[in-house]
Simulated scan of single mutants.
Amino acid sequence: MTSSPTPAATTPGPLSVAEYQQVLGRVEATVRRQVAGLMAAQTVTAANAGRTKVGLVLAQQKTVLEAVQPPPRLAAVHADALRTLSGFIGGTLENAVATGCTVLDPPAKFLYSIKLDVYQAISLGDDTIGKRTAFGRKLLPAPPVPPPDRRGVNGTVVQRLVRGGSGGVRVTNVGATDALVVVLSGKKVQGSVYVRARSKASLLGLRGAILISIRTGRDWDAAGRGFTADCEETAFTEPLASGYVWSFKVGEDG
């Protein structure tokens, strides 16, 4: 009795361009479906859950792609695709801590931030892949749409803690950014008024010597009484004497 030799194990060779493109297409469609689900999320909780799912799918599809041998002339594309699938690892995102004069993002804006973070992490750094294969052209759905910046009504008195005084301020905002002008006695707020860009507003009835703090920024959050983006704060270095209605400009001409 003679034994037949055991056939040598064979390593699968590189895929053809057409076969490799089919693999890329399946990977792309799987990622796109998961990201589209995240983009459709309507709450922060749902979006953070979607982030976790996207991270898992990316890891799974990276494993799928690592298991195939690309055509030799597409080796660079293969490496780029693997890097793309490694661009986001999942996990939840917490609302940023308020800093300086910036207030916390409202839910709608934070929801957008969660989606944008994932979208940008996966987005191809350049279009190299899309030029050499079809991969990348349909990897992601349309990007999330940012909520519009909110603005206060010009002249709105945001805070009013003192009345009946003979002092006041008349403010001209010559800048391109809305402003909140806060009037203080020491560290105590007497009142504040919202002044839109290229507009004028007044706050009267103030008492005693006053200090002025000026906050400019984007996306006014009325509930938080502050800007959620690009907030900057400046202040007068000296108090203004009591009993006068002071006129001054804020912002930068341009």
Rank of each mutant, 00 (worst) to 15 (best):
D126F: 05
N48R: 01
L184D: 15
G217H: 00
F135D: 04
V97W: 09
L85A: 03
A222K: 10
E232W: 10
K109R: 12
P141S: 07
T30G: 12
S4D: 13
T216R: 08
R33D: 14
T156N: 06
N95Q: 08
P106Q: 01
T52M: 02
V57C: 11
V97C: 09
K109V: 15
K200R: 08
V35M: 09
A222E: 02
A197R: 15
G55N: 07
A67S: 10
R73Y: 00
A108Y: 02
P148D: 05
P71Y: 10
A76G: 13
T237M: 06
L116V: 04
P70C: 06
H78D: 05
Q69A: 14
I212P: 07
D127V: 07
R170E: 09
P141K: 12
A81V: 12
V153W: 00
G186D: 14
F135C: 04
E238M: 06
Q120L: 11
V158Y: 00
V169D: 12
V54A: 09
T99S: 11
V118C: 13
R132W: 06
K109G: 02
T11C: 04
T63L: 11
G25S: 14
A29K: 05
K249Y: 04
S113V: 15
D117K: 14
R198S: 10
K138R: 06
F88L: 04
R32P: 02
S4P: 11
Q61R: 05
P106D: 11
P106F: 00
K138F: 07
G136Q: 03
R160I: 04
W220H: 14
Q34N: 12
Y119P: 12
P7N: 06
P148Q: 12
V103M: 04
V23I: 00
G224I: 02
V171C: 02
G37I: 13
F135W: 07
R225H: 00
D127G: 10
R150F: 03
D230K: 14
V27D: 07
C101H: 01
A98E: 15
G167C: 13
E232R: 12
G152L: 03
